[in-house]
Amino acid sequence: MTDVTDVTETETGTDSGGAARSGRDLSSAKDMIVCEGVSKWYGDFQALEGVSATIKEQEVVVVLGPSGSGKSTWIRCINRLEEHQEGLIVVDGVELSNDLRNIEKVRSEVGMVFQQFNLFPHLKVRDNVSLAPIWVRKKSKAEAEEQAQALLELVGIPEQADKFPGQLSGGQQQRVAIARALAMEPKIMLFDEPTSALDPEMIKEVLDVMKNLALSGMTMMVVTHEMGFAKEVADRIIFMEEGQIVEVGTPEHFFTNPTEDRTKLFLSQILA
């Protein structure tokens, strides 16, 4: 994360520079997330039908798909907010099973950002960020608060540290949520529709932070509807529909030359 500089000054281009990242060769990188035949049911309804995918270290994967396609369910299975019933999920060499210690280990290495921010409303912004490092990572209070301040600077809102989340705009809240997840020094970051609950003028500030994070080499899995972000930042795009992975490919391939009919239909609806 050393090469992340001033976030607010970074420009978000819409269509330029997209190919710059998709050309990266990550085939020799370590596997961070391995899913094999992951299935999940809610009662009789099958939300995931045998999802298999491997995500490499430093890779940025964007998951696209119509609503109800199982994107969020899948990403939430990866840190066990949802329990999968069949198949195998291995995160950084640790298999997710019912063993509580494994779950805690995975969770402290996987950061998650939610659609609704889910900041702790009774704690100041600084305490939101430093709480978990103090009690989960067992850092000293001073150290954790120093780190919190540095992270808030990284996401561009150091001056809001003494406010309560309710006093912040949506975009600022989501940036605090990113700082909170980063405070645990995770190896993987999961984003579950991070901009869907934001007003249009605040989406950019959050996407900028995410882009810088991607540039710094973080392994990221992003569920989003922001096509610009997907085009520009993603190494790979996974398209899902009805609980299945329909198509996987680089942004170039996905947006210009999709093979599956369902992908074409989706793109025509989105980009129309």
Binding site: N118, F120, H122, M184
Partner: peptide, 29 residues
């Protein structure tokens, strides 16, 4: 809310830590 539970779990808190630091302060309020 469920989101509060999930957020606390996602940063790796144990159930008792979640209860003491996140759930009870909000519940009592």
């Amino acid at each position: 809310t469920r989101g509060q539970h999930e957020a606390a779990e996602a940063v790796g808190m144990t159930t008792s830590q979640k209860t003491v630091f996140i759930v009870l302060p909000q519940a009592l309020r």
